[in-house]
Write a protein that binds this DNA or RNA. Structure first.
Lengths: 249, 249
DNA sequence: GAAACGGGTATGTCCGGACAACAGGACCTC
DNA sequence: GAGGTCCTGTTGTCCGGACATACCCGTTTC
């Protein structure tokens, strides 16, 4: 357990990006590159602060953000250790489109339907509007490498976003929302499974009665307003939900 | 948007529980009880700190923990607001047993198998041991209200835990681990679906070929060691994964 | 009427210090 | 040799202050 040579960090006090953030990013990059070995001590906070010309609270804030990400573990009286890898990304509020793109699958979208409709009881309850009130309904078929992967059905409040057809084929719904200045805050979702109906089987190129993954999700922005209700169907033979989660506290 | 009367908080400086934690718990309770209306401002930090006889960093730490939980939203230049509810609990590293118990379903467990076996390639890779090395294999049938819900298959390193049969029927695996002094840190999991084989259908009292939810999970403790690999089957007709997630940053 | 300006107010960042609490090893005692 | 005790190092908690920065809103200007 020999002490390793200190890493080099470059901090720019003139930059608008906070110092604790600059530090945490460089620490994360060093861990990613393996320059900070898993299990190794990070060196005590006070000495680190002194070496970098920062105060301890600032250094602590940088370290804390990585602890929250699951990359570091603090042990009182011992020190701060790098976790033994295995950590990738925790579950995020991400869109299928971006996930597929990041995985190198060429995603594509076919818009099946785009209309203003009266809200059903389920949709009204999820979006917090009156039953029968107008909502936007979008139905899309998502493809990867030209093969169908999922049927996405979304309901949105009217006037939230203008979903011009072309935009929907070039990006995921969430990216469009963020671009429109909506800050996503949280979502409530349910993942289940059921057998495909004949129509669904045909659309997704599956045999009749094939098992499908279902996902229902209501997304809220930071004012607490429901901005989207989605009811999706995934081909179980070609898709699964894959994520990491951290123990709280 | 009238200013409401300030709430009362009682802080005990003699208690070993940190002041910021006492405050955050009382704030959370007040939100839970509806004493802090959704959307209402929390009052500025400096004045709040003065009123409670605390410093601003302490108050900020309490508020920050609730922001991380998704209960509050900070807005620079505006104030800190209570989120418009909808927030319950984010996804946790919880055991099915505790979930069922919390939901008022009387959980029960039938141990189908408990043996030391050589690790298959999949299990060995997940647990980080050599293929063919000894691992503990536990197979359980989980019931709720006397009805089968899931078939749970777990592999653990030998010597980690002594899984006496009776204990396995009275509590979930994770609770046993925590009791044994293991601190769970993170887990990697995959949720999918497939059709039941005849044997699985029979065990779970489903028709042949019924859609089942599958979940595979590898759990790590805070030293980065894999402590459990689970491969589970859920009846899609009686169970679904239901959780909340927060947008990062 | 719409756009540009500016003041007030709140959070965001950062500092420097102090003491408490815990883990682990060294040391001593029996 | 086994057990307990002290010491040291490290993180945990808390304080008081300072300045920067973004947002809201009323005012002014065109």
């Amino acid at each position: 357990m020999a002490k390793q040579q200190p890493l080099q960090f470059t901090l720019d006090r003139g930059s608008p990006v906070p110092l604790y953030f600059q530090l945490s990013q460089q620490l994360e990059a060093a861990i990613e590159r393996g320059e900070l070995a898993p299990g190794s001590l990070l060196g005590n906070e006070i000495e680190l602060a002194g070496r970098l010309g920062l105060s301890r609270p600032t250094v602590r804030q940088a370290i804390q953000s990585l602890v929250d990400k699951g990359l570091l573990v603090r042990r009182r009286g011992v020190g701060t250790q790098v976790v033994h890898s295995q950590v990738r990304r925790p579950l995020e509020l991400s869109s299928l489109y971006d996930d597929l793109e990041a995985a190198g699958q060429k995603p594509a979208t076919r818009v099946l339907r785009r209309a203003v409709e009266p809200a059903s009881a389920t949709v009204a309850a999820a979006l917090g509007v009156a039953e029968g009130a107008d909502v936007v309904h979008v139905e899309r078929l998502r493809l990867a490498h030209g093969e169908p992967v999922a049927r996405l059905s979304n309901h949105l409040p009217v006037g939230l976003l203008d979903l011009e057809g072309g935009a929907l084929e070039r990006a995921g719904l969430y990216r469009l929302m963020r671009t429109a200045g909506i800050t996503l805050h949280s979502a409530r979702q349910t993942i289940g499974a059921r057998a495909a109906t004949p129509a669904e089987a045909e659309l997704l190129a599956e045999p009749a009665g094939a098992p499908l993954l279902t996902m229902e999700r209501t997304t809220y922005d930071d004012t607490g307003r429901a901005v989207e209700f989605g009811s999706h169907l995934y081909r179980a033979s070609r898709y699964s939900f894959d994520f990491q989660l951290l123990a709280r506290s």
